[in-house]
């Protein structure tokens, strides 16, 4: 499918910002199942300096420094993207999760791009409660992708979607305790569980096409940015799972960036001088092109 995606982030500050610098990750990745036809990133006010490079996880990053005093910042990303359906993967035919470690350890060279996602990260600490939640999905000998599917589906059923329950820094421990949160929290829970079992798994940030209720028109800007996970198996490479929607992502998921957790691929983070209080609004519009 082809889409036009518009992703606007607008900051309003209560007092003027004198200087600000930002790290921006809003440029979707070029992937085998996803081609970027066009992409533009517009920042207002115009940055004094903008610099781009690729981070260690292969994502495009833009650095912007703004030295003009401002009370409002708009970062707007516009892309045309074509996605292809995911290949049919037989979840049952993957390597047993408990043999995976050994298989990876005996390979001739060490694939950093895989093993870096198997160790704990700041938002996915390994703890007793993570172990307890993960265990039922990982009986001895179960194929790793089947275990991942079971785990993400359990999260879908056990956890309630509730944007008021958590914020950007709610630890996995609390999410597990209250069983509420948003896609970011569910993804972190899933990643912690998988890494507890030393399975390489990564955080995916992206967009999801939303469907209006039957008979109603599509509302512009009503979509949202989204997060899900991706799990590695030797036969298939990376396979994606969406614990928030109990799905294996296909044509309607558009990936922006991969990382160990949210920290690695936060779409915009910034450091400000001045600004005091701020409000942020995000508008995402995923429009299918015909």
């Amino acid at each position: 499918m082809r889409y036009q995606v518009v992703h606007d982030t607008i900051y309003d500050y209560s007092t003027p910002v004198v200087q600000s610098r930002h790290v921006i990750r809003k440029s979707p990745r070029d992937l085998p199942h996803q081609a970027i036809e066009t992409h533009s990133l517009t920042i207002t006010p115009r940055p004094t300096i903008i610099d781009r490079h690729t981070d260690p996880f292969g994502n495009a990053i833009a650095f912007a420094e703004i030295d003009t005093e401002h009370r409002k910042l708009v970062v707007s990303a516009k892309s045309r993207i074509e996605t292809r359906p995911s290949l049919n993967i037989d979840l049952d035919k993957s390597y047993a999760w408990d043999g995976l470690r050994k298989a990876m350890g005996t390979a001739k060279t060490c694939e950093i791009d895989v093993v870096q996602y198997a160790v704990a990260s700041r938002h996915t600490p390994l703890t007793n409660d993570v172990m307890a939640y993960a265990a039922p999905s990982f009986p001895v000998g179960r194929p790793v992708l089947q275990a991942a599917w079971d785990l993400t589906s359990r999260i879908y059923h056990d956890f309630k979607f509730d944007p008021t329950a958590t914020d950007v820094s709610t630890p996995v421990h609390d999410v597990l305790q209250h069983r509420r949160g948003v896609c970011q929290d569910f993804s972190h829970v899933a990643l912690a569980c998988l890494r507890m079992m030393r399975v390489p798994a990564r955080y995916v940030s992206g967009y999801l096409l939303t469907h209006p209720p039957p008979g109603q028109p599509r509302l512009q800007g009503a979509d949202a940015s989204h997060a899900w996970i991706s799990v590695w198996a030797p036969e298939t490479g990376w396979v994606e799972f969406d614990p928030t929607n109990n799905q294996i992502p296909g044509e309607e998921h558009i990936a922006i960036a991969y990382g160990r957790d949210f920290d690695d691929i936060n779409p915009i983070s910034g450091i400000l001088l001045g600004g005091n209080e701020h409000t942020v609004s995000v508008a995402v519009d995923v429009m299918p092109l015909v």
């Binding site: 948003v182 970011q184 999801l208 949202a224 940015s225 929607n245 983070s269 001045g274 995000v282």
Partner: peptide, 15 residues
């Protein structure tokens, strides 16, 4: 000047 501070956006959504 005052200590610089961080701003975030949050990934919100789903369903």
């Amino acid at each position: 000047e005052e200590k610089p501070h961080r701003v975030f956006t949050r990934r919100f959504a789903g369903l």
